[in-house]
Design a binder for these strands. Sequence first.
DNA 1: CAGTGGTCTAGACCACAGT
DNA 2: CTGTGGTCTAGACCACTGA
Lengths: 238, 238
Amino acid sequence: MAARNLPQYRRLYLLLRKHIVDGVYHEGDMLPSENELCILHGLTRPTVRKAMDMLVHEGFIRRHQGKGSIVHKLPKGIGILSISGTTKAIGKDNLATQTIIRPHIMEWPIDFPFLLSESENDSGCIFFSRLRLVNGSPIFYDITYLPNINLPRFSVRNLDNKSLFDILRTSYSLEVKGGEQFIKAINSPDKEICDILGVNQSQPVLHLQRKMDTSRLNYYIYSILYCNTDEHSLYGIF
Amino acid sequence: MAARNLPQYRRLYLLLRKHIVDGVYHEGDMLPSENELCILHGLTRPTVRKAMDMLVHEGFIRRHQGKGSIVHKLPKGIGILSISGTTKAIGKDNLATQTIIRPHIMEWPIDFPFLLSESENDSGCIFFSRLRLVNGSPIFYDITYLPNINLPRFSVRNLDNKSLFDILRTSYSLEVKGGEQFIKAINSPDKEICDILGVNQSQPVLHLQRKMDTSRLNYYIYSILYCNTDEHSLYGIF
DNA sequence: CAGTGGTCTAGACCACAGT
DNA sequence: CTGTGGTCTAGACCACTGA
């Protein structure tokens, strides 16, 4: 299965997160105390706390001094802003991904919103776009730019209903570690994107520009997203 | 000046952040190594690392194993997606705050977007709104709802150009610890808000609904923001 | 090789909540 | 009071970088 050379704090973090997501602990439940977790997993408190720090940071639990740690709420994707429906949290099952433009190699756009390094510029990019549907309705239109450096055979891959991050991790040992993003409200991008998202041109959409760090030094992933927030909001914790 | 009973890691964090923001360290500069910081401030590595962890989380620095920690850059957008809110990312001097509706006590709105507890509901709320100007132009319209529980004489306070969080911390021992938010792109709220923000009614604005945790158990602060993202983006890291 | 950040241990004392 | 989370120490060993 997965690599077993993970740090202990990360292993515990993943385990606890899985338990929360899988419903072993429900919203409002008390987690085992830090000392209990120490004994259960043979760790010391700083290690246990580091795992729990991550859960707090991602909004899964909340700590109360003198009382304990309580499960806060349910999952989010990677990153700080993920989608959340107006009525219910979105399980993985009702999220689908369609490839709109298949991966191909091209030059970077002239008006690319991020500053590129010389080597990024010289090598061009792998470009593709995908549509994310929640419960069958299009919500995100996601345009991705990968610097065309050392990603053999990427452009022949099928990305439908697959996680880009999983493919990068498993096939290219590339881990996405975080990133930054700029968010705007804009008034209808071009007509094509309106059609794809199923919005009319007077309808406002959310516009995100993201630059993501990876485990490979100086290798960044860029993405531009358009999001129909008519029925869903973006959700984030801070 | 500020309280002196801060945890060491937080004091170091604030100091380093100030140095970065003030330009003592510039983008790309190497920070002192963790061991140097230990000696300089008389701390041990876990404490120093905790301070640096916070800087990493907020995107101020980046660590590279075997090399050192490097100042990443200052956010160019408005860092409202992170906790210290609007005052942090932008240089202090070009941000102003105007009170539009002075604090007063009222019932909660019927269509309030968050679920309220019984005691919140019963006690009503303190309501006020403020406009944030960046370089003189209105960017945020911020409507705040505080549960009217144990905040004596709040409604007579003057909030112009003051940080709400500072007032709550210093006068009421209420620390804002984090929170959650929902983000949408919407098409012109009512005309009044358009006028305040200086946008016309066909212009899209960003709409944020926030619920913030505090150090007081079960006490939450609610806020609704409208943001003109025509010239500024919201900025966040993840 | 020496220096850096990454992980981890085994304690300690404190502030706070509930009994 | 006990048990909880919040902070902190004083070490240790590792993996990685660059000279």
